[in-house]
Write a protein that binds this DNA or RNA. Structure first.
Lengths: 420, 420
DNA sequence: GAGGAAAACGAAGCGTTCTTTCCTATTCCT
DNA sequence: AGGAATAGGAAAGAACGCTTCGTTTTCCTC
């Protein structure tokens, strides 16, 4: 903590981060005159800020020839220094572990996935984690010491300070195991633990900045991540979005999988049980009861018009709509994004869900399937790790602006003419 | 819009608003040395800022002798100039209109309430509004031209830009009537329309800064206001918090009062119907079926142990818990505050509600009855009007800081070590 | 009652930053 | 080859905050 008396130095830092933000928001290399028009600063100021950012390693002079005007002395163009500080995202799914490596610019360097015996076998899961990490590092030709940030996604309610799970009935034994400090022994950076649905929400929020989003992570388990005006909402106990615990029979109980009432009903295993029951003794050409039935089978059959598959789909989406409608009425979100393996189901899913929501909510939000499907959580992990790294980089430039914590917070969100 | 090249002037303005924020947050007159220690600015800077704020009419030198140290040359103390810019709050309730007049410091100058024929009679409501406003102005010895801001609370979904109600089945005819422009003819200031439950939430948020709150406005109608980390959440269509429309029978319909399914069941009229049915033919000493039954009667009977009243209470709170539990699981709020006439019920209500929530949510939030009870909405109106006025006052000092809109917004809420 | 200590107030000098202004450098077009 | 257009660089001027010093006012002690 530097001495507080700051003087005009804060101005310098403020303007520098203004320039940095301008360069960051643009998706292409920027020339100085463009930065001037965006930030409305003068040329010497911008030049000095760029110089500072260059020596600080935050931006580099791009070698590409600038776009646009092709007359006069060619301008130097600057962009973020992205091909450095690789970050790692890990998804501890119930049946598979995934890892993904990306640079600061968001370019994927490597990805790996691996099925694991089961969520209850901590040793097997840890071994799987080690293998997918090693695979990624090998593919990208990187050493673990070079990684700048790691984010681990997991079902359950996480304790971000302790780095443990506070509630994870589906992963017995994990509550007492501190996975972040375990992994931090191998990396030179911090390892963050985050709820998987929250990461799916981060992935959605990065595509939809500033919006209010309910991200439904729907696979074997069911969870939601809540994004309010672009900001992830974690809740008082970091337990926001635990919609899997919604119950209709006035009785909150976990079944033997550790599933809450709602996810037991419409999580993929619950859904398959329902389908198996529906199809019992009635083997069709596509859906034979002796083959291992998957959720995808049900959806493709529904898309082809199979009545019994449609019945399963209809029931499932009705239950989800019933559970979500109070949340949608309370939040009035812009959009509901559905991720997880179920996102392969296609528009059939959305059509049924929309119909059931229309019967229960006055303003039906936009509905969307995550294009990342079952990879949404890993991608959200990588995205969050990138944000952590950026925040840390920017922290130096922001030191003094902590003063802005004195800026009062009003209770209103700002009406049209009141936003400042 | 002044010329953009700003230079060190933005520093001046930044420091000036820092000083203003410090003075505003303190609830007592502040001496300059106190402002120095809070803002960590130097004396000349603070002195200059104070001088600027004094000439701008935002702060005044208090005549009170300063607290604390009583040695040395007595320090001048400064405080906000509050005894000016009176603001008006209005509550257009279903059965009564209320008005309340306050100064910028939050001191109530006058208050008035009046029963009206019914919410469907627009003429009667307007006449009532005029009378409560006139009564307040007369009591406070003020002229309408002196009012600095007006906020009108009403059930239904408001359109803040148009100043009309976009959905208000309970107030037929109001959708086409532009109440704000009607009132703006009488005042020299802007008139804002806001949902009543949102105003109850504003009232709660002003007592609980920075918290996540579900404010339940529970009277004849039932609505919620959602506050996320101290900020009112309005939702995409300004329709957040419309929990009165939650349905359990998969059918969203309005009854002839214009009530949604949930409010038809447990709004005060629905509750009284239930009680009347419960007590029919079984007149007790306290609750005779021939007297007009009120919700308060039911609660006081329940508090005294009347089994049938307890049954009504139990049923009502169970229905509310069932409707709210998905919202609570999704948001994991700090607290649920219940306002409206029902808040007179006392702790019996909270105990039953808590019990029913415990069966449905893993982390039960704090529960509280609004101390303002049926006056919560008017008080929230006044609070919001005060905030509007402050924001407008501050706008001048903030002009240049609009630049901060370039400060990027990350999708995360900021982990422990990431907040800046 | 006089002197000292403590706190507040006021003013001058200094350093940093941004802005303005002018000039030079490079490239394309005619 | 020369003009136009754009980029880059340097110096002067202005505004601001920080530091330092001296002055004023009150309380406490002797």
């Amino acid at each position: 903590m530097a001495d507080i008396p700051a003087g005009t130095a804060v101005l310098r830092q403020f303007n520098t981060s203004l320039v940095l933000a301008a360069v960051r928001q643009a998706r292409r290399p920027l020339r100085i005159s463009e930065i001037i028009s965006v930030t409305r600063l003068t040329r010497p100021t911008v030049a000095q800020a760029i110089e500072e950012l260059k020596t600080g390693g935050l931006v580099v002079e791009s070698t590409d020839s600038p776009d646009g005007v092709r007359q006069g002395r060619p301008a130097a163009v600057f962009e973020l220094r992205t091909g450095v500080d690789p970050v790692l995202g890990i998804d501890l799914g119930p049946h598979a572990v995934k890892a993904r490596l990306s640079d600061l610019g968001g370019n994927t360097l490597a990805a790996s996935a691996r099925a694991v015996a089961g969520p209850h076998d901590a040793v097997a899961v840890l071994a799987g984690v080690r293998r997918v990490i090693d695979s990624c590092l090998r593919d990208a030709n990187l050493d673990s010491a070079q990684i700048a940030d790691v984010v681990v996604g997991s079902p359950g309610v996480v304790d971000p300070v302790a780095g443990r799970l506070r509630l994870a009935p589906s992963m017995r034994g994990w509550e007492t195991f501190n996975i972040t400090s375990h992994l931090e022994k191998e990396f030179r950076c911090r390892v963050h633990l985050e709820n998987d649905a929250n990461l799916a929400a981060v992935a959605a929020a990065s595509r939809l900045p500033g919006r209010t989003i309910i991200a439904i992570q729907w696979g074997a388990r069911l969870g939601a991540g809540i994004v309010i005006n672009g900001m992830l909402h974690r809740g008082k106990d970091n337990a926001a979005g635990e919609v899997g615990l919604i119950s209709f029979d006035d009785n909150l109980a976990f079944d033997r999988d550790g599933s809450g009432p709602l996810e037991a009903q419409i999580g993929s295993t619950g859904m398959i049980n329902l389908a198996r029951h529906e199809f019992s003794g009635v083997p069709t050409t596509r859906l034979r009861s002796n083959r291992k039935l998957t959720a995808t089978d049900v959806f493709s059959a529904a898309a082809e018009g199979d009545e019994r598959a449609i019945a399963v789909l209809d029931h499932t989406t009705r239950v989800l709509a019933r559970a979500l409608s109070p949340v949608i009425l309370a939040l009035n979100p812009d959009i509901v994004v559905i991720s997880g393996g179920i996102a392969h189901a296609g528009d059939v899913l959305l059509e049924h869900l929309r119909r059931h929501l229309q019967a229960r909510t006055y303003w039906v939000p936009e509905l969307e399937l995550s294009e990342y499907a079952e990879h949404t959580v890993v991608i959200g992990s990588v995205e969050l790790a990138r944000q952590h790294t950026w925040d840390r980089r920017l922290a130096a430039a922001k030191q003094k602006l902590e003063l802005s914590e004195y800026t009062e917070r009003t209770a209103t969100n700002g009406g049209p003419e009141l936003a400042w």
